[in-house]
Write a protein that binds this DNA or RNA. Structure first.
Length: 496
RNA sequence: GCUCCCAUCAUCUAGAGGCCUAGGAUACCGGAUUUUCAUUCCGGCGACACGAGUUCGAAUCUCGUUGGGAGUACCA
């Protein structure tokens, strides 16, 4: 039996990070067992699903590299892979009819109002809230006649009234157990003739030859219904495995109010698919040797379904950022440049060596590179005064530095390169930092100002307008003599 | 309310009776490298929810308590 697994997202809103998570687990499971990974679109909620959303799902999965062997836009032998198209084929109606004919389902004519009142009464009485099965008593022939006459109705499953249900989920200590009495007569076919999730998923999983359903824990409670449907429909049920739900920091189910859940957001932010996937791969699962950074292909090789931890992991963006940094800085230059280009329309190549280890994503580039591209920079007077100096001293030093650099440039064969600048400035510091023998007290005080730390910082802030920059000499080189000298003057001016 | 699931550092996790005075990673805090920032490297902080039981021995098994989560839709 070859493994066939699927993800079955519903195309409502933006593609969800939970889809990527479950997709990753399924993808890895398929890969690990030489199986097939399938995408199916579950768009049976006509009020909420959109084509645009389905398109976005395809795009996001491709962006992530979670390629599927069969799916709406790639085809396959068990299609169509979009449930609305299967509705048109009458697939679900046929199964509903089969259940009706077998006496395993019945027509229900209760209105929304009826159900609402019923639930309110149950809540008031402290009873479990579930359908009271009043239409189950209806004569099937009479009900069929009412339906034929056009009366609005749904089809419900005839859940067993007694006995119990038990299922050994391989990830849980104890088999999952329920009594049938507490299982609702689930609606299978809605009034509009479309199936609910339960019928549609069970039917399609069977028709598509799905062998393992690896899905989120939120489905655990409806497992009995799914097993029952498989049985009554004469299917061999796939193995169902339930994994933990991604959580917000407060442990509630991940939501867009408390976390970025849209895959589009991660893409726009400049996160790399490698980083996101790596991060998700660390949730509920781990590398057997504790390795933290790994790629999709590698994960496909070591992934072990039985090692999944079902306690719902908190989705921690800080860890994702860390992994993003690792992946980003390890990018080959062409790809890093492409990432930067994706964020800003600029030629980044020259500055890359200077900035790469200071970035976590392409979007960081401009923030760092601005002083290199700008004609002028804005100086903040407070930042311009190094510790231990006052305003006037800082201004004096700036002016003298400007003058010294001018003089340096005017000399024959002067070079404006990092190495030459470093040599010159070291020599300058040695020269100016030492008072001549017999110097006056004032001269000595002047010399004392020429401390490396202060001077370098003055140059840095003067030339770039900021205190954090790449290494000084390379920075000066790239900005260029003209702009550096000009900016030093402007900086001095700010301290007047 | 009812039902079910889960429970190791703040967070992600390793750990499937002795290798555990509980290991790694993130975050945080120090230090080293460095002209700043970042990178990198070193160090620190820091957890088996609680209570019984089983056992020579329990983070690991059982039960209870507590805590958290999910489900309870003609949504998926």
């Amino acid at each position: 039996m070859t493994v066939r697994v699927r993800i079955a997202p519903s195309p409502t809103g933006d593609p969800h990070v939970g889809t990527a998570y479950i997709g990753l687990l399924n993808w890895c499971f398929a890969r690990r067992h030489g199986g097939r990974f399938i995408l199916r679109i579950e768009d049976t909620d006509r009020t909420r699903c959109t084509e645009a959303s389905a398109q976005a799902i395809y795009r996001s999965l491709k962006w992530l590299g979670l390629s599927y062997d069969e799916g709406p836009d790639v085809g396959g032998e068990r299609g169509p892979y979009v449930q609305s198209e299967r509705v048109a084929l009458g697939i679900y109606r046929r199964y509903a009819d089969q259940l009706l004919a077998q006496g395993d389902a019945y027509r229900c004519f209760c209105t929304a109002g009826d159900l609402d009142a019923m639930r309110k009464a149950q809540a008031a009485a402290g009873q479990p809230i579930m359908y009271d099965r009043r239409c189950r008593q209806l004569d099937p022939a009479a009900a069929a006649a009412r339906a034929a006459a056009g009366e609005a109705h749904v089809v419900r499953m005839k859940s067993p009234l007694e006995g119990s249900f038990s299922y050994p989920d391989r990830l849980r200590r104890q088999p999952f157990t329920k009594t049938w009495a507490e299982i609702d007569d689930q609606v299978l076919l809605k009034a509009d003739g479309w199936p609910t999730y339960h019928l549609a998923a069970v039917a399609d999983d069977h028709l598509m030859g799905i062998t393992h359903v690896i899905r989120a824990e939120e489905w655990l409670n409806s497992l009995p219904k799914h097993i029952w449907l498989n049985q009554r429909l004469g299917f061999t049920a796939p193995e169902y495995v339930h994994v933990g739900l991604l959580r917000n920091a407060d442990k509630s189910k991940i939501s867009k109010r408390k976390n970025p859940t849209s895959l589009l957001w991660y893409e726009r932010q400049g996160f790399l698919p490698e980083a996101l996937l790596n991060f998700l791969g660390l949730l509920g699962h781990s590398h057997p040797e504790g390795k933290e950074q790994f790629g999709l292909a590698e994960m496909g090789a070591f992934f072990d379904l039985d090692r999944i931890n079902v306690a719902g992991p908190v989705f921690d963006l800080a860890k994702l950022r860390h992994l993003q940094g690792l992946w980003f800085r390890a990018l080959p230059p062409e790809r890093m440049i492409a990432e930067i280009h994706r964020a800003v329309d600029i030629q980044a190549g020259e500055l890359l060596p200077l900035l790469r280890e200071r970035m976590t994503c392409g979007g960081d580039f401009m923030g760092q590179a601005e002083p290199f591209y700008a004609q002028t920079v804005a100086h903040h007077p407070d930042e311009l005064v190094p510790k231990g100096l006052d305003r006037a001293q800082a201004r004096g030093l700036l002016e003298q530095l400007q003058a010294e650099l001018r003089k340096y440039l005017a000399a024959d064969g002067a070079q404006w390169t990092a190495a030459a600048l470093e040599a010159f400035l070291r020599e300058l510091l040695a020269r100016r930092g030492q008072a001549a023998p017999g110097a006056t007290a004032e001269q000595q005080a002047q010399a004392a100002l020429w401390q490396q730390k202060a001077v370098y910082m003055l140059l840095r802030v003067g030339a770039t307008g900021r205190a954090n920059t790449p290494p000084l000499f390379e920075t000066l080189e790239r900005i260029g003599a003209l702009r550096v000298i000009e900016r030093l003057g402007a900086a001095a001016g700010r301290l007047k």
